[in-house]
Design a protein around this nucleic acid. Sequence first.
DNA 1: GATGAATGAGTTTTCATTCAT
DNA 2: GATGAATGAAAACTCATTCAT
Lengths: 204, 204, 204, 204
Amino acid sequence: MTERLTTEDADMNRELKKEQTRARIKEAALALFSEQGYETTTVEAITKQAGVAKGTFFNYFSSKDDLLCDLQGIFAMNEVGKLKGTPGPLVPRLQLLVFELVKRFEMNKPLTRALFQGMLATDAALELHNRLLADLSEALLPLVLQAQENGEIRKDMPPAMLAQQAFQTYFGTLVIWAMEAGDEPLATRMTMTFELFFKGIAPQ
Amino acid sequence: MTERLTTEDADMNRELKKEQTRARIKEAALALFSEQGYETTTVEAITKQAGVAKGTFFNYFSSKDDLLCDLQGIFAMNEVGKLKGTPGPLVPRLQLLVFELVKRFEMNKPLTRALFQGMLATDAALELHNRLLADLSEALLPLVLQAQENGEIRKDMPPAMLAQQAFQTYFGTLVIWAMEAGDEPLATRMTMTFELFFKGIAPQ
Amino acid sequence: MTERLTTEDADMNRELKKEQTRARIKEAALALFSEQGYETTTVEAITKQAGVAKGTFFNYFSSKDDLLCDLQGIFAMNEVGKLKGTPGPLVPRLQLLVFELVKRFEMNKPLTRALFQGMLATDAALELHNRLLADLSEALLPLVLQAQENGEIRKDMPPAMLAQQAFQTYFGTLVIWAMEAGDEPLATRMTMTFELFFKGIAPQ
Amino acid sequence: MTERLTTEDADMNRELKKEQTRARIKEAALALFSEQGYETTTVEAITKQAGVAKGTFFNYFSSKDDLLCDLQGIFAMNEVGKLKGTPGPLVPRLQLLVFELVKRFEMNKPLTRALFQGMLATDAALELHNRLLADLSEALLPLVLQAQENGEIRKDMPPAMLAQQAFQTYFGTLVIWAMEAGDEPLATRMTMTFELFFKGIAPQ
DNA sequence: GATGAATGAGTTTTCATTCAT
DNA sequence: GATGAATGAAAACTCATTCAT
């Protein structure tokens, strides 16, 4: 059978395996980060958990920080981009979006905390996050403007500021929730917070 | 000469000197944290900056983490306790309070970031912070309740939740602001955010 | 098409390709050694530069040190062997020989340094070099003897010692020149040095 | 007794101990370098041999390379500076000087080799050596000039070049001798080499 | 014969903390 | 109480080499 494989097949197999190894490392990292935090988790521990050799880690990530940046992808919010295509008032759509996003972090307070921890300790990750924020703001801006024109939200604040406030509300809630001791569901908290926020940006 | 001093005088002198040394170490730490972050700043660097020997550090703080906890005192908000004594509507007094608090961090984005960084990396500091939060909530709670009764703020949310939201808004804004790249003044941002918040918790 | 080739042709083709690959690896190594030195240059970097896979390297050289030994061939001085066949006085022929040899290293101070670096760090390479030196001495010895008999060079020193001094002068100049910071041409330096040397071994 | 010590005494004691530890580390390094070469000797091995903890090494030397630079002091030739004060013809004084210098390396071929190895592998050490050479040349230059004027050595070569040749002869002999397998004494070789060199730079 | 993913021993270096003086 | 030399556990990262495909 092996000899039946064309080079392409073999390449695909190899590609596949690589993808799996990379995934295993990332999963292991996520698991350990949520147990021990970012700084406390060593590369060796990650590889051990992933079942690969220490050196293998560096075949996939140039450094521990590099892995963190990769993991920051969790914060990516492609859904924001999709908002543009959908019709109707903005606020309920945002509500829905927030609801969707929350699912990623729910039940993962320690991991969320670890990610912020890493972000604060790693310049590269912080920069990455800021770039992400800039992109998101840009995507949200026209929608906010339109919502203002529609009289859906207050007009006495610049749209950029409103967008900024939206993201601050989201991430601020996320990090503060992650820092707290209890086990209140993120969804509850986020819902509550955005309830206030939406009331705050309502017209009049 | 030294022996001319009464024991009490000597004790006071000694006490004073100790206090000064402790203060010098803390100042040095704050300065370096805001330059390099928490993890990156070494105890040796702190003592050097403070002009004392490395060993002296451990005469004043049992560990580097202990120093951090001590520094977290910056987040303490005794002013919240004082609110109780003052009369009149709550919201404007809160506005004033926030305004006061902001001054501590203004112009110190890197330090703010470093403190959160340390807090996220150090369990003891995080617990301390949570205890602080609990105390603050407890202090604010009766005021919120009264404000609800006065019809100053909405009654359809439990007062504990409103208090929680207030602190989340405050700390969330602080940390998100600290994480951002630009140099927008904290006061502006905080004012804006609380503008929305107060509108969000208004009755009706 | 491939199958049209006779076995011999195919073999030749294969041989040729192998030779080319080997050459490409050696060239790549020389280029990188002269840029970064021996220790600093990794096998991976060499293969990348050569356009082959990392594993391929070990199909051609049993180790990185083995490659270095192979490269030491640069120091080989077959020309010394050819001296035997030519007539006339020894000194001018040596002068010419040195002049020829110098061309290999001229403009390649960093590579020369890297080769010595590798030689000093690698026992195998050092031994190889010593064996080379022994062979060269053996080849030069009869010529020196004859030159002494001809009265061309001083007789009060054993010919073996004179030969040794000649090689020491050559390699010593080479390494010291390579270690220097400036960009004086090797030819100038070598000429000067041998001028003194030839005067030193002149009769009387 | 301890309490009799003044602070100064205590400081001196401490200073003394420090000096001893530093010396122990350097001795250990020299011993190991001469056994195993520079690259092969690890910092851990050095500290083990010196009987101190691994971390202690870095209290004295900022890096392994730093230690090497410190060790390069062996090549320093303060004696060259003293030549200036002594009267009489230059050549015999140089002969004597070389004889003195040789003693340091005699019987230490492996160490000599290791030092050159480290020098070739470490940019900082190489630069240091070049600076040393420049200083030495400067010190020798006026003596050479005077010797030329005295008719002691040939005038048809610039004095700077002659000085350069002298040092090249010295260091070239040193390194080539160190690279050789046998156990010929350095003194013999050096004497022989300088015999030729002095004849080479004689007038006429 | 070529490939490149996996290996893991090995290295330098850091730094909080201790403790003798 | 102050000092700073000594400690040594740990951590990130390197890289020659192997070997299954």
